[in-house]
């Protein structure tokens, strides 16, 4: 009879370690359910933003505020971090714990850089343009939408770092493989939302 330990620590990872256990399967389904809900949540924020975009009080319109070079850098950072988390999952499936941790680490660094850029951007708007959450309906809608996404980035980073630290000495097994997989799905979803933010908010905002 194989013991509990053997089941969770096979010598070779099954083809889909994230779905090899019942717990993993449940996590997988439940998380996609959650992502469907998140899509609708972000849609309501996007809708609000589009509806209130023109309601400005002063010269602080989207055309005057947004600077595309910074947005471009932020997009590249987040897009690259998406690829590095794909690499992390590739090594997870090959049962290479060290490399997975390394690529997750790179993902976290890129995510932090993105967050740094966003903080700089908000700081810049507030101090140089006096454009705040309370300036206008446009301001409220902008900070709510983009800030909510930034909150997701922060949460994703804390999630990945927590997993990395908690499992540092455990290594990879079928108990924590689904956890890593789900966290990487969340990270990709953050990038999905950002694609719409840079298109709808920034690119369409400067046209």
């Amino acid at each position: 009879m194989s013991s509990h330990e053997d089941v969770l620590n096979p010598k070779v990872m099954p083809e889909e370690p994230e779905k090899a256990t019942l717990e993993g399967k449940n996590k997988f389904l439940g998380f996609w359910f959650f992502l469907g809900g998140e899509t609708v949540l972000f849609a309501s924020l996007f809708g609000t933003y589009l509806a209130l975009k023109g309601s400005t009080m002063d010269d602080n319109t989207s055309q005057n505020l947004f600077e595309l070079p910074l947005v471009f850098i932020m997009t590249m950072l987040l897009l690259t971090s998406s690829l590095t988390s794909v690499y992390a999952m590739y090594h997870m499936k090959n049962n290479d714990f060290g490399k997975m941790q390394l690529w997750l680490g790179i993902t976290v660094v890129l995510g932090l850089a993105f967050l740094g850029c966003e903080l700089y951007e908000f700081y810049h708007y507030i101090h140089h343009y006096e454009f705040t959450f309370r300036s206008s309906a446009f301001g409220s809608a902008f900070y709510t939408l983009v800030g909510f996404h930034g909150g997701h980035v922060l949460f994703g980073l804390l999630w990945i770092v927590t997993l990395m630290v908690r499992n540092a000495k455990r290594g990879l097994n079928l108990y924590n493989a689904p956890k890593f997989y789900i966290a990487s799905l969340y990270w990709h979803f953050i990038d999905v939302v950002w694609v719409f933010i840079f298109t709808v908010v920034y690119l369409m905002g400067v046209i």
Binding site: T39, G47, L50
Partner: peptide, 14 residues
Amino acid sequence: GGAAVAFLTVLTLL
């Protein structure tokens, strides 16, 4: 499903 509801949400608000 999420995308369909999302589309309706944005459309309604606009």
